[in-house]
Design a protein around this nucleic acid. Structure first.
Lengths: 253, 253
DNA sequence: GATAGAAAACTAGTCAACAAGTCGTCTAAT
DNA sequence: ATTAGACGACTTGTTGACTAGTTTTCTATC
């Protein structure tokens, strides 16, 4: 068996950003990101596909995820599907009730606040240390390239989030603690969902880019305190958009 | 099938603290902590048993973990064992090489430093917020009870670590973010192993208790800055004991 | 028609067998 | 003696069947 190319059938789907449906059943359509870590073979692909669908709200909170149905959809047996579901459960993205079923986790304000808290704490520590140690030239170039790409033409929501992630991850890698970003990424899924949910009314991209600039400037100025303030400011954006969401989409909470 | 009581055969074992063996095969003996969360049934018990053995170095870094052998030992099929191994792999405690075998992860200085970094960042954020919000009376009582218990008679290594964990987790729970401790706990396993490894020569318990007192005092004094300093001081202890370990136990790294 | 009970259609949990890849060893040829 | 090749004893990955529990639905009874 060859691990390099997984043959999980995947399909691209247009995302119904602003059309959340009360219907818990969802069209079983997905796309798997290539080039993810690697550990297991088909399990990883299924995990990636489901995670992407959940984060992008193609699978709505509360939707039922039947192992049988998924194994049928992915063309594998229940084993790999089950393992993928276990990992999604560990990420807090789905909830499996014994003998009852697996369901996409509902949005939870406490869970979002916890994720925000964890991310803020880690990101502050990373930026502080980057400001103390100084940013390698290569990392600086990449950060600035990401910044200008963020403001470029034709960046859709998904690619902007990818650029956003890369920008933040760059600092962790720069200080030789790239794996810290993996911890952040696990938590990040929680409020990536609300980010997609509130896309039209969300913080203007210009503001976010300006905050990114502030963070980078503080690091380049070797000013940890300013970096911490900039990160705090940046992370506070989540709080602003999260407030009225439960009122607007009560069935997702 | 009844989930409440799992019937995984477990056996208690005296721990060979200061007798690390080059032999990668280990006596397959374990005890499972009761009252763990609950999600799956037998998988959870196997996971807990193996995790405990790994953290306490009853399973030495580099040891081979055969799914077949483990399923034989636990009296189940390979399925639950496999799922437990997946979760241990996610925790970074074991490494599974496709078609080759599963192995207890070796001690890695970068991994330990990463875990230390994450824990320090989160613990600082927690203590700071606890100092800002103030500690509820109940939490204060529990913290002080834990402190005196830590200095009590006849606390062995395992129970001290449990008290230690409870002390730290208390702050997270006090500020309503108890689940943050779960994130810390996942990372903590990495340097719990070196804690057990360096038990005899480790930092005297008195010093650790004094550091705990400093943290609690800072929180009670509503002094976030002092709390941060105290946590940094406390976390620095790990650095002190980790230095000469690779030289003394090269086969574990 | 409304309600209580049985049965059928789900669910996840578990298991044993098979497939496929890797490693070590043993044999045979040079 | 050395080396190349094949065999066999491992490993994890995958599968489909079976078990036990839950929910729903349908039916018979009041």
């Amino acid at each position: 068996m060859v691990w390099s190319s997984t043959a999980i059938p995947t399909t691209l789907t247009a995302l119904p950003f602003c059309a959340p449906r009360p219907d818990p059943d969802m069209p079983p359509v997905t796309a798997a990101r290539p080039g993810l870590p690697s550990h297991p073979p088909t399990t990883r692909a299924i995990y990636a596909a489901l995670r992407r669908d959940i984060v992008m709200l193609a699978l709505m909170p509360g939707a039922k995820l039947s192992e049988n149905e998924l194994s049928l959809r992915f063309g594998t047996s229940r084993g790999p599907v089950r393992e993928a579901l276990i990992r999604l459960g560990e990420d807090g993205l789905i909830e499996v009730l014994p003998q009852r079923g697996s369901f996409v986790g509902r949005l939870s304000l406490p869970a979002i606040e916890r994720a925000r808290f964890v991310r803020e704490a880690l990101e502050i520590a990373v930026v502080r240390r980057a400001a103390e140690k100084g940013l390698p030239a290569e990392a600086r170039i990449r950060a600035e390239a990401s910044l200008s790409a963020q403001g470029g033409e034709g960046v859709d929501a998904e690619s902007f989030i990818a650029l956003d992630d890369g920008f933040h991850a760059g600092f962790a890698e720069a200080i030789g603690l790239g794996e810290v970003w993996a911890v952040i990424e696990r938590e990040k899924a929680q409020f990536d969902r609300i980010r997609f949910l509130s896309l039209p009314a969300a913080t203007p991209i210009d503001v976010i880019i300006a905050q990114h600039r502030s963070i980078l400037r503080a690091v380049l100025d070797r000013d940890p305190a300013a970096g911490e303030v900039a990160v705090r400011d940046h992370m506070a954006e989540v709080l602003k958009i999260v407030d009225d969401l439960p009122g607007r989409y009560p069935h997702l909470f």
